[in-house]
Nucleic acid binder design. Structure first.
Lengths: 233, 233
DNA sequence: TTAATAGTGTCTATGAGACATTATGCA
DNA sequence: TGCATAATGTCTCATAGACACTATTAA
């Protein structure tokens, strides 16, 4: 670690908060109030302050800019291309988080922030060549966050983080379908989820649907999913 | 991204170069010439210079400190605890890479660097409570690198990156055994590898062993491994 | 009744784990 | 000959995929 010039280099954190809304995977964005990229949409985030943990920076800036308080952030990766910010060299440590949208308005984004369906964004990295254009290299970060979510559904019980409790197996299945963009076989999905101890816990209650009422479940204690549910080749 | 105080914060890159040597997973370390942690062993790495890609910093400092030239680095994660470096706030972007050790001395570490078997290191994060103590939080980085390697063996053909060409299936199997620390069933492993198109390509040659001579193979073009080879619960 | 979704049961194909057996070198 | 490792064959079990069928509500 030889010391070289390291001034004029900023460190920031950005957060890709994902949810499933109206059957679509969505990400929380903020409309930028200032240049550069004024009025364009960007991930919430900001610079690291002295003696502040990176994850705390992510939580703090997320709360400041969107009003969302999320406690379990997961580091995604770090983006440091020299010209990714036109003002100066900024290395950003991106975090990803997953949340359910409940009916409590206190948990909804405020100010210039809102959720956007991934499908409505211009994300070349996901072969989406039209839609809302994002500031900086944030389309790349969103693409990586989406891939992280897709991968984690395979081998963890993350899907249940996207649904509000209590939930039905149909709702849980539609999370998989929204994130992976494919349809899953209802009966096999049920067998798999119920056959994994600790994935979900039955409440004994039922909820009305468009058809037969469905059993309600809560999240179980298990976080790993073994064997995994694989997306296929 | 509101601008706040961001001076006095350094950005560095560190590299965990992994290999399999004498049947053991090993990592390339450098004995520190200066304080802090003088004479202790650390990952090669150094500060990012102006307008330098993070990956280039990693490659450059690896080459400077160890003489190893590795072109395919993969970002591992970023470590930014406020006091991880006693001198100043330093955020380090860690990279991981995988290499085979051939007989060419040009590809061996030089100077104060050498490979250390993971088993000989003090890595609390891997429940290894005695052995060589590493500088900074590098035992955590090494632990994460080892876990990355273990995971990638499952769903990619990474294992072949650890063996010098040409290689036998026995050598390839011993890579899995060294990295995962378990023994694999020889016949099932062979069926799996040969049943995955593009994992290995037969050369037609054979190599002597302690028993029957073994067919020799080269790396194939496939990088994904489907279905994966799973370590088990 | 029909439509819609929840939920159960079962057949089959695939692939992993386990094991037996043969092949081929060397001491 | 015995030993060590390579290589092949096969049986079994777990599980995913597919599909048929029943259950329960609302319109």
């Amino acid at each position: 670690m030889a010391g070289t010039d390291r001034l004029g280099l900023g460190v920031a954190c950005d957060v890709a908060l994902l949810t499933v809304r109206r059957g679509q995977l969505a990400v929380l964005l903020v409309q930028r109030p200032d240049e550069p990229y004024r009025d364009q949409w960007a991930l919430p985030g900001g610079f690291v302050t002295d003696d502040e943990e990176l994850e705390v920076t992510a939580e703090r800036t997320l709360a400041d800019e969107t009003g969302m308080h999320i406690s379990h952030l997961e580091q995604l990766r770090t983006y440091g291309k020299p010209n990714r910010d036109p003002r100066a060299r900024v290395v950003t440590v991106a975090y990803v988080a997953f949340t359910a949208l409940d009916d409590d308005p206190a948990n909804h984004p405020v100010g210039r922030s809102r959720f956007w369906a991934i499908d409505d964004l211009l994300i070349p990295e996901l072969d989406q060549c039209d839609g809302l254009s994002l500031a900086f290299d944030h389309s790349l970060i969103v693409a990586d966050a989406v891939e992280r979510a897709r991968a984690k559904l395979e081998y963890t019980t993350l899907a249940s983080a996207f649904v509000d409790e209590p939930f039905t197996l149909g709702e849980l299945r539609r999370v998989y379908e929204a994130v992976w963009g494919i349809s899953l076989h209802e009966a096999n999905f049920r067998r798999k989820v119920l056959g994994t101890p600790g994935f979900v816990e039955a409440t004994g209650e039922t909820a009305p649907t468009d058809g037969r009422p469905a059993q309600l479940y809560r999240r179980g204690n298990e976080t790993r999913l073994w064997p995994p549910i694989l997306r296929g080749a």
